[in-house]
């Protein structure tokens, strides 16, 4: 464990807390894509299959349970909470996210480390996580006003995998010199997808203006 990885995990956890805070405090999920949240549930379930079979560290186990639990809670809020679900605007959340599942699964069947159920699903979860933010970014571009909490949520969510890239650089050059092409490339694609969001987010922050993404 190095500082970049810890910072990445904490940033990821913080993004989820910001989202839960927004939904719980404002009893609203406007501007949030349910499709991205559903994809994250699939990402965590397929990534943490070894939750009970392999013990890496107490930290890993606790974080895996927190990520699975909070992502379920967010989907539950947006689908079933009597007040929150009214604020979900499915007409804005238009991305066909199920179209992402098959290509990621096929790619995992073709490109993986070992052809075992665990490894193929773990690889699938990395490919899926790289593109899971697409429905949310599309929604942000369509929704006129992006509230601060939603903007912060997406920013921290994008920053976490960027910190993981630094963690991978650190590990490769200073620790085990092991090439991990699958997480590296997936993580870079994932971070790159946020590039224009980061640009407009930092621009709006500098100019103390409301965040607006060009359509």
């Amino acid at each position: 464990m190095n500082l970049f990885r810890l910072a990445g995990d904490m940033t990821h956890l913080f993004s989820i807390i910001v989202l839960l805070l927004k939904i719980h405090a404002t009893k609203s999920c406007s501007g949030i894509s349910l499709k991205t949240q559903e994809l994250y549930v699939i990402v965590f379930l397929t990534r943490y299959l070894d939750l009970f079979t392999r013990f890496v560290s107490l930290y890993n186990t606790v974080m895996k349970i927190v990520f699975i639990g909070t992502s379920f809670a967010i989907v539950w809020y947006m689908r079933y909470h009597k007040v929150v679900k009214q604020t979900y605007n499915k007409d804005e959340d238009t991305f066909k996210h199920y179209f992402l599942l098959l290509p990621c699964f096929v790619l995992a069947l073709l490109l993986h480390n070992e052809f075992t159920t665990m490894d193929v699903l773990w690889t699938f979860s990395l490919y899926l996580e790289a593109v899971a933010i697409l429905p949310q970014l599309v929604l942000l571009q369509q929704s006129r006003n992006i509230d601060n909490l939603t903007g912060n949520y997406v920013f921290f969510l994008g920053a976490y995998r960027g910190l993981y890239v630094l963690n991978w650089i650190y590990r490769y050059f200073l620790q085990d010199h092991r090439a991990r092409w699958i997480p590296w490339i997936s993580g870079l694609v994932q971070t790159a997808l946020y590039a224009d969001f980061f640009y407009y987010y930092i621009l709006s922050w500098k100019k103390h203006e409301k965040l607006k993404l060009p359509a």
């Binding site: 990821h12 392999r54 773990w122 963690n167």
Partner: peptide, 10 residues
């Protein structure tokens, strides 16, 4: 070994 090492992150 390979598999152990690969899945040690979140």
């Amino acid at each position: 070994d390979k598999d152990e090492d690969q899945h040690d992150e979140l």
